[in-house]
Design a protein around this nucleic acid. Structure first.
Length: 574
RNA sequence: GUUCCGUUGGUCAAAUGGUUAAGACGGCUGACUUUCUAUCAGCAGAUGGGAGUUCGAUUCUCCUACGGAAUUCCA
């Protein structure tokens, strides 16, 4: 690579940055750091109508939380500023004018209403209205009107836009690092607006001008921009600039809806969908709902449930799958990510107009490492079996060449798994502090004691918020015994056994985990009682349920006196 | 509708013109002479369909189906 690597993440401040945006930022960051380059944040706020207060700060906070602060940004200016397009407004007009002067662009006076009319009219006829070579002379612009008319309109201050003059009968060869070569016939391209009548550039113009001026070497962005690549290539050529390299990342798709259908939505779905499904696949209507329901509940055994012969009917199987899924996508609300039961934003966001609060990964207890690691593996992998990568390791391993072409479905279960993993790597004391401040019952408890508790329970916790459920019995005696567990553990003879245990514990002078273990286990073995008969009631007495870490650890932690008290309580109940 | 991109188990994914197509998540089963949401072990599960090239295709080509994106004076 001869050039200095300079990449930019260029979001629009229209609301909170969603998870897909974070991944785009991450890949930019990784690529920059891998090549000792610069990671730039540029705010693309050319559409004043969509500007949302606080969104820019949110983006910066989210980047910081992920551990990937921008080297140059509106709040950390480099020598290519300003970094907000609204503050660069004066720059763009001259470039638009230059394009008009060189014959690559032209003035257009069509109103929004007129264009809307054409679009609707075409749509009604099943066609798409395209503003380009085949009709531009029939519309109102500086190519169709006489020079005098154009001058008169401009002098009169009529609204106009500047459109790119897309060429006819050319084939463009576009390069994308991830997708290889793409050929585009220019005849299908339309004359995009570059400069709006409100005096602001559109994304396309501002983007190219800024990328050039900021000396961006690689444009790494979402696949939704791929259709614009042809225009962008032509713009660079029209300006006589060298184009950067492009990489279009695969999209992050919504999670598999199957996992998030709750009982109500399954019923609803089954009702709504059964008819269409059955008609399409010619099934017996009476069995409809049963079949669909069982398929939904266990999608894996589709063949068995439908009694499909795999070889002959595999196409049918696939059809059924896609048909069902398609239906499900339609049924699940697009707007409401929260209904799916997991956040779609890195940080919590409060809509200033409606007051609606959207959950964030941070606030839901996810570790930044887990989110970064998970996101990195959506669309990329190192080609090895290693899955655990912190940011530094990702920087070393990352390679745009290994980015996938196909879209990846977001999997909330997997990110939880990562979180559980990173939980184990967290420092116990800081976890204890977080735990303590989140639980009012702990306000008077010594943090060092909490730290020891955390050490014992964290291996089965995914979030800090799991701690209380896993450890409350370290802080307070059980007030009742789980019903099922009592039936299992409290049986005839249990009372006598617990009395024996109590006296053994009471006799121990040197109260340690080891001595407890030796004494009680020794007693069990020498009397040939059976571990379950002793350990289960003992656990129940101490915890109130059949859960938690090692019984001896619990006993030691709560102390001899408290342990004996809990055993006595259990004996009283029996 | 049109254009572009894509398609390997339920999900994320590796690999390959040639024996049994990795691994992870999730699922199921078992073990842990004490629980479990933990841990360990085991099991089930995939190259969308059709043609063509080839001795041989999941891999290359074409068609089709499906999915996604774009088609805004949005970014």
């Amino acid at each position: 690579m001869t050039k200095n690597v300079r990449v930019r993440f260029a979001p629009s401040p229209t609301g909170p940055l969603h998870i897909g945006g974070v991944r785009t930022a991450l890949f930019n960051y990784l690529f920059a750091k891998k090549h000792n380059g610069t990671f730039i944040l540029r705010i693309e706020d050319t559409d004043q109508n969509r500007y949302v207060e606080g969104a820019e700060q949110y983006i910066i906070d989210a980047l910081n939380w992920c551990g990937m602060p921008a080297d140059e940004s509106p709040v950390n200016q480099g020598k290519f500023g300003p970094y907000r397009q609204s503050e660069r407004k004066d720059i763009y007009k001259q470039y638009a004018d230059a394009l008009v002067a060189s014959g690559n662009a032209y003035y257009a006076f069509d109103t929004s209403e007129e264009l809307d009319f054409h679009r609707k009219d075409h749509e009604a006829k099943g066609k798409t209205f395209i503003y380009n070579w085949h009709n531009r002379l029939k519309l109102k612009n500086s190519l169709s009107l006489s020079a005098e008319d154009v001058k008169a309109k401009l002098d009169a201050g009529d609204d106009y836009v500047i459109r790119f003059k897309s060429p006819q009968d050319e084939t463009l060869h576009l390069k994308d690092i991830i997708r290889g070569d793409i050929k585009i016939d220019t005849n299908i391209l339309d004359d995009k607006v570059l400069f709006k009548s409100d005096g602001m550039p559109t994304y396309h113009l501002a983007n190219i001008v800024d990328d050039h001026l900021m000396e961006i070497s690689h444009v790494i962005r979402g696949e939704e921009w791929l259709p614009s690549l042809a225009l962008h290539y032509q713009l660079y050529a029209a300006f006589g600039w060298e184009a950067p390299e492009f990489a279009h990342l695969p999209l992050i798709l919504k999670p598999d809806p199957l996992k998030y259908l709750n009982k109500n939505s399954i019923d609803k779905f089954t009702d709504i969908y059964s008819e269409e499904f059955l008609n399409k696949f010619d099934y017996d209507t009476t069995k409809a709902k049963t079949i669909i329901r069982s398929i939904i509940e266990n999608f894996k055994n589709l063949s068995q449930q439908l009694k499909i012969n795999d070889n002959k009917d595999s196409n049918l199987k696939k059809d059924i799958k896609t048909t069902l899924k398609k239906g499900m996508y339609g049924k699940l609300s697009k707007r409401d990510g929260d209904k799916l039961g997991f956040p779609v934003f890195p940080l919590e966001w409060t809509d200033s107009k409606t007051g609606d609060v959207s959950r964030g990964y941070k606030e839901d207890g996810y570790f930044q490492e887990a989110m970064v690691n998970f996101l990195a593996f959506l669309g990329w992998n190192p080609g090895t079996e290693q899955e655990i990568f912190n940011l530094d390791k990702l920087i070393t391993a990352f390679d745009l060449e290994r980015v996938n072409k196909s879209g990846a479905r977001f999997d909330p279960d997997k990110i939880k798994w990562f979180n559980h993993h990173y939980m184990q790597e967290q420092d116990n004391l800081s976890l204890a502090e977080r735990f303590k401040s989140s639980q009012s019952e702990l306000s008077e408890i010594d943090v060092n004691y909490i730290e020891m508790v955390v050490a014992l329970v964290k291996e089965r916790a995914t979030f800090v918020s799991d701690f209380w459920g896993l450890s409350h019995f370290f802080f307070a005696a059980p007030t009742s015994y789980d019903e099922k567990a009592s039936k299992k553990a409290f049986k005839e003879g249990t009372k006598e056994i617990l009395e024996q245990v109590a006296s053994i514990v009471n006799a121990i002078e040197d109260f340690t985990v080891e001595s407890l273990q030796t004494e009680i286990k020794g007693w069990i073995t020498s009397n040939d009682i059976g571990f379950g008969k002793v350990m289960m009631p003992l656990r129940l007495a101490l915890v109130g349920a059949l859960q938690g870490p090692d019984v001896f650890d619990i006993m030691f932690m709560i102390g001899k006196a408290e342990g004996l008290r809990r055993i006595e309580n259990a004996i009283d109940v029996l």
